[in-house]
Write a protein that binds this DNA or RNA. Structure first.
Lengths: 227, 227
DNA sequence: TACTAGTATGCTGCATACAGGAATTAAAGA
DNA sequence: TCTTTAATTCCTGTATGCAGCATACTAGTA
């Protein structure tokens, strides 16, 4: 341990190096391509082609593909490389159940641990979402929606829970988007969110848990026909 | 579908090709090395060295390392390669809480979905564990213990839940092993297991959930001093 | 015409080679 | 003797080349 005796200049800036590696770059890029549908489910990934498109050689791309395979976005077929994971209704239901269990845990802890300003920030995010809803702006609404769920879990203070939740949510991102088709369904989802925020502000864990579970049950009902 | 008209010889053996890729082989090998402690937490992984040890070149090894990093067993440090993830008490507690939430979900579904023969098999596994306990055989006891938890979740019928649970459990494997140090603590853990099996046989979900949660709370108490 | 065997192409999987950077050690100055 | 700096060594990150396998296409046969 040869720690430097003197303080480093600008110690506050010394930390957040958080170097953006090429690996991270590639992983995120391909992940986005999957989520956004540029690489549709079931599509085979052509390493040489995609590598040329991204301006990199096959090796780092392959490493990124293996990484994403472990996250569950890709499937590795021996001798045929990576194909975009395509999941059926049963698997989707399973994932939503797990998500429900995780958000249940998060709900209790958030009610206990979140500060008032945390909750105020969550409310602000909700209000922003409502504005997008009023304007019928689906994409921004959707992004806010996701952010609220993510924030709700992050406020639990359990970092591992947040990471696990995020991992699952990213996989559902494409599918969940279709869950708000139709004005009626959309209105129902909004109402559920409104009730959830109110329950957090009241710091009522039992009520929040009930709402979260129902919200995800309903999400399943909203998307089940589509899948 | 071009099914051959005549029966193939030994059709039961025709199926299980299930090609074992070198990639899978490497991933599993390194994962075991981490779990078994050959690669201790905090250790830097030397690609050339480890590759030579396993008789492979760096390329497939690197792909496997990226894979494991995504699973959370390794951490990728830019410019310094992969180091074995070392987690502190807080992260361990977080993981056990998530595990608790997942097993809670599994407990309810298993009570509802498991067949009688499933439960009988679980009891048999439990009995086997008790024999190892009686003989003081820690390693086999431990393996049975893990198998029971895994089976309990698998019987829920939710494959995604099972996979998520297994992923977390594999990460805890090393640490949990120390949780049974001392005769008193060990006896307590055994008693909890006994009660859990009884609750499953009675198909009493509420009781099983309470026991599962308490079991993991106690696991935390058993290991918290050590970490 | 349909089906099988043979062939050719293209992609994956792995090994090797090279470039850039980090860590360590040695050397020089205070 | 300790600190600082420079140089060397090793390791990571990326590119490229080659072997093996899977798929697609073509020709031949029933």
């Amino acid at each position: 341990m040869t720690e430097p005796a003197h303080e480093m200049i600008a110690p506050s800036r010394a930390r957040p190096i958080a170097r953006r590696t090429m690996h991270d770059e590639i992983v995120e890029c391909v992940r986005d391509m999957i989520i956004e549908g540029q690489l549709p489910p079931g599509a085979r990934i052509h390493e040489g082609q995609l590598g040329k498109l991204l301006g990199i050689s096959r090796t780092p791309l392959r490493e990124a593909l293996k990484f994403l395979a472990s996250e569950g976005l890709l499937e590795l077929v021996p001798g045929r490389g990576a194909v975009v994971k395509k999941f059926g209704a049963a698997e989707l239901r399973d994932m939503l159940q797990v998500l429900s269990a995780l958000e249940t845990l998060a709900a209790r802890q958030t009610c206990a641990n979140a500060t008032d300003s945390d909750i105020a920030a969550l409310r602000a995010l909700h209000d922003e979402m409502m504005r997008h809803y009023a304007r019928g702006n689906r994409l921004d609404y959707y992004k806010c929606n996701q952010a609220i769920h993510t924030r709700l879990v992050a406020l639990s203070g359990n970092a591992f829970l947040a990471a696990t939740h995020e991992s699952i949510q990213s996989r559902l991102r494409r599918i969940r988007f279709v869950g708000h088709e139709g004005a009626t369904k959309w209105a129902a989802a909004v109402a559920e969110h409104e009730a959830m925020i109110a329950a957090i502000e009241a710091r009522d864990p039992d009520k929040l848990v009930a709402l979260v579970v129902r919200h995800l049950d309903n999400t399943w009902e909203r998307v089940r026909e589509i899948v």
